[in-house]
Design a protein around this nucleic acid. Structure first.
Length: 415
RNA sequence: GGGAGUGUAGCGAAGUCUGGCUAAACGCGACGGACUGUAACUCCGUUCCUUCGGGUUCGUAGGUUCGAAUCCUACCGCUCCCA
């Protein structure tokens, strides 16, 4: 299978500007492909992972991977379908850029991957240069027709965000010239921006200049719902924001119906390997073999093998049920990935304790959970609203382990 | 600038004409429980806060009234039509 056939098989291809042309160009020698991301936060999340995985596949297929961390575009704001973006301060942007560069480096490794900041060229451009050299080449009529702009005309869009597509177009042109980038990869919402770049290159470099764009379909689960959130929170790639354990569990908890789709889309496993996993899972779905493999593969890609081992060990400890016999040292080792809070070194009513630990947001909620038998402290179920929690009662007085519901653990560190 | 709408809990959406029975129907989501495979489906419960007496809510600020999400005034936001 070639690069494109593989993407199709994985359900990871939405639109492509010129399939034949791209394959031809790829066969003629090594070319680069790029994915751009703006530093809107200090970490990427699962939504960002998708284009990066396709870029990685491109790299595995013999291409050169180039990544833009958009210092300049991030300062402008890619228009969202709903409302204008809040601009970020320069300090925040700088901080985010560094954090994201580091993450991307971890995903791609040092060798052969180029990470650039578009501020290097966009930041130096003067306004007259911009208008003369680039603005002249863009038709407002065409720009207005881009879906994202058209959808914003009713509610309003600033001149700043309107201009975004030109900047992204310039990025593609710059990389086309500097890094032999011939392909831009993005989510399906990026189609308009990507074609801006392809059009610009064709205008400047000639209509037969090889430049292609490719988008990836939005991932949804089997019920059609948006993918990538857990309890309303984004799944981050930064271990400090989403622990490797939580990350692993996110994948492990996916339902049977989605496993095949996710294995294809989110792992680098070969087709026959995936078929084998799917067949084995179908035979004995209760063993959750597909989920385990999915969790392993994706966690390894993002956090490394050590994190996979740790997440598996932690999962084993948590779901075997009995935590009361663990030593303080074991607690410290095994539960490092669980959300933690500082516990006072004194007895306290359960309800107050739960709220102060941030496990529930109101006493009402905390009472309900206790009454329902949802709260377990140090392995013992607590159902009495008057129960006094003694944080020093177990684990050498160093830790309190709270479980809410079946799956959620919180570790209190006694002060 | 002129005109017509509209703003209700995390979201969607009733209630407004005909003021009290409304902490506010219903749906979704979320959270817990049962079942199970750490699943799906299904079922049950909860979903503003609380010292469990009560307290604070229906865009904001006033007003009328014994009593206002409901009536009046002003202001703010959003949508649509005309210019």
């Amino acid at each position: 299978m070639n690069f494109i056939e593989d993407l199709k098989w994985r359900g990871a291809l939405n639109q492509i500007t010129d399939e034949e042309g791209l394959l031809k160009t790829m066969s003629e020698g090594q070319i680069g492909a790029y994915v751009g991301t703006d530093p809107t936060a200090d970490s990427l999340h699962l939504g960002h992972l998708i284009p990066f995985m396709v870029l990685k596949r491109f790299q595995n297929a013999g291409g050169k991977a180039v990544i833009i961390v958009g210092g300049a575009t991030g300062a402008i704001g890619d228009p969202r379908p709903t409302t204008e973006r809040q601009l970020l301060s320069q300090e925040t942007l700088d901080h985010n850029i560094e954090a994201i560069k580091e993450q991307v480096t971890r995903l791609f490794g040092q060798n052969g991957t180029k990470i650039v900041n578009n501020n290097d060229w966009l930041g130096k451009m003067t306004l007259p240069e911009f208008l003369r050299d680039y603005g002249k080449l863009f038709s407002v009529n065409v720009m207005l027709k881009k879906d994202i702009v058209a959808s914003r005309l009713a509610t309003g869009i600033s001149y700043t965000e309107f201009t975004y597509q030109i900047l992204q177009g310039i990025d593609f042109l710059q990389l086309w010239r500097r890094e032999d980038v011939r392909l831009e990869i993005g989510g399906s919402d990026q189609w308009g921006n990507i074609t801006s770049g392809v059009d610009l290159i064709h205008t400047v470099e000639g209509n037969d200049a090889p430049a292609y764009g490719l988008t990836i379909p939005l991932m949804t689960d089997s019920t059609g719902k948006k993918f990538g959130k857990s309890e309303g929170n984004a799944i981050w790639l930064d271990a400090k924001k989403t622990s490797p354990y939580t990350f692993y569990q996110f994948w492990f908890n996916q339902q049977d119906a989605d496993i095949e789709k996710y294995l294809k889309y989110f792992t680098f496993l070969e087709p026959d390997e995936i078929e084998k996993i799917v067949a084995e899972s179908a035979e004995n779905p209760g063993a959750r073999y597909g989920q385990r493999r999915l969790a392993e593969e994706v966690t390894r890609f993002v956090h490394g093998q050590a994190a996979v081992d740790e997440a598996e060990e932690l999962s084993k400890a948590l779901f075997s049920g009995d935590v009361s016999n663990l030593s303080a040292q074991q607690i410290q080792d095994v539960f490092a990935g669980v959300p933690s809070f500082d516990a006072k070194n004194e007895k306290q009513n359960v309800v107050d304790f739960i709220v102060e630990a941030g496990i529930d947001k109101s006493k009402r909620q905390a009472r309900e959970d206790v009454t329902n038998g949802a709260i377990t402290i140090n392995g013992e179920k607590v159902t009495d609203l008057e129960h006094e929690v003694d944080p020093t009662a177990a684990y050498d007085g160093k830790f309190v382990l709270i479980r809410r519901g079946k799956k959620k653990y919180f570790l209190g560190k006694v002060q």
